[in-house]
Nucleic acid binder design. Structure first.
Lengths: 190, 190
DNA sequence: CTGTTTACCGAACATTCGGTCAGTTGACAA
DNA sequence: TTGTCAACTGACCGAATGTTCGGTAAACAG
C-alpha cells in the first residue's frame, strides 16, 4: 500500500524540519529537494512554492494556539487559574506541533506571509497579557513586577522550550508543563 | 573633526541592526548598503565581507559572556549566590550588548563562523548548568525539577529578553534583572 | 600647485536563487 | 497490449546574490 512518492503533507513535514535546522531564509529549494530525495522541480508538483510552505506551517502553529484560547477554560474562571491552564496548554501545543511553533517564533516579518503571522501572534500575546493583568488585579500575582513584564518573561520561558525540546529524549510534555509552572509560579528556591 | 563617512565600527553597528531586523540570511549586502546610505561596493572598503561582519558581532557577544564567567564572583562562594550573580550579569550584558547577543541567540550553524560561535555558546551553557547542579546539590534549589531543565528554563527566560527589550523604553537593566530573579527564584504567585 | 591617500561609485563577475516547462517513467486499468 | 495518468527529471529562465575591480572626486600633505 505504501506509495513510493511524496504528497503535499510529507513535503511540508520535511520542509519545516529543514527550515528549522538552517532557518527559512537559509534554506534553498535545492536543500529541500536533497532532503526529500527528489529534484527541485518535483517539489513544485506537490506544492506551489517556498513561501506557501512557510504560510501553511505558520498557520498550523497559530491555529493550535487560537483554538486553545477559544476554549471555555481560557475564558471563564479565576484569572490565575485560566493563566495556569493557558500556560499548560501552550507547553502542550508547543510539544505537539514543535517544528511549526518553532518556525513561528523565529519569524521576522520579511514577507506578507510573515507579517500576517506576526500580527496573529501579537493578538495571541495580547490575550495572554490581559490574563496576567487580570490576575494581578485579583491580587493573585506579585504586585512588585509590571504585569506586561511578567507576561513577557513567563512566555519567554515557555517559548524557549522550542529551542531545545526533543520529544524523543526529553520527558513528557505534561511533566515539562509541570516544571514550568513550578518554577514560574512558586520559584526555584527551596 | 568628524569625518563624513563610515568606518569598520559604524558599518558593524548598522549591519548588526539590520541583521536583527531581517535575519542574517534574510539580509543582502544591498539592504546593508541602503541602510548605510552608500553602495554595496563601499562596504568592502571598510570590511572584508558579510560573514566576517557576523563573526565580529558574535565575538562581541561571546567575549562579554566569557569575561563574566571568568570573574571571581562566578567562581567562588555559595553556588546559589554565584548563580544569582551570573543571572544578574547575564541580563546586564544582554542589555549592554543587546544587538550582538540577539544575533548570537539566533545562530543556526550554517557556516564555520556560526558553528564556532555555537560551540563557544555551548561552553557557556555548560558552565551555567554546572552551577545549577551544584546549587541543587547544596539543597538550595527545589529538588523536584531536574537541574538541566532548570538551567534551560531559567536561561530561556533570560535570553527571551533579547526578543523585545528596547533600552530606550523598557526600564533599567538592573530593574529587569531584579524582576527576572524575583520570578525565577521566588515565583510570581503571592 | 602637485602628489598621495581616503572613501567612495558604477559596472561587471560568477554563482545561486526560486520557479517553469516539455518530456520521461512506471504502475495500473481496460 | 495499449493507453492513461500521477510523479517525477533535466534543461533552462531571469533575477538576485556576495564579491571584485577600475576609476574618481575630495581632502589633505608637501
Amino acid at each position: 500500500m505504501k506509495k513510493r512518492g511524496h504528497d503535499p503533507e510529507s513535503v511540508l513535514h520535511t520542509a519545516v524540519g529543514v527550515f528549522n535546522e538552517r532557518g527559512y531564509d537559509g534554506t534553498s529549494m535545492e536543500d529541500l529537494a536533497r532532503a526529500l530525495g527528489v529534484t527541485k522541480s518535483a517539489i513544485y508538483y506537490h506544492v506551489p512554492g517556498k513561501e506557501q510552505l512557510l504560510g501553511r506551517a505558520l498557520d498550523r502553529a497559530l491555529d493550535g494556539l487560537f483554538a486553545m484560547i477559544g476554549d471555555e477554560r481560557a475564558r471563564s474562571g479565576r484569572a490565575i487559574d485560566r493563566l495556569e491552564w493557558v500556560v499548560r496548554r501552550s507547553v502542550a501545543i508547543l510539544a505537539e506541533r514543535l517544528p511549526y511553533v518553532t518556525l513561528l517564533l523565529r519569524v521576522h516579518g520579511n514577507s506578507p506571509t510573515e507579517l500576517g503571522a506576526l500580527e496573529r501572534r501579537r493578538e495571541f500575546d495580547r490575550f495572554v497579557s490581559a490574563l496576567v493583568k487580570e490576575a494581578a488585579a485579583d491580587g493573585d500575582v506579585r504586585p512588585d513586577v509590571d504585569p506586561a513584564l511578567v507576561t513577557r518573561l513567563l512566555f519567554g520561558m515557555v517559548n524557549s522550550i522550542a529551542e531545545w525540546y526533543q520529544p524523543a529524549r526529553g520527558g513528557s510534555p505534561d511533566a515539562l508543563a509541570e516544571a514550568v509552572l513550578k518554577i514560574a509560579f512558586d520559584g526555584l528556591r527551596v
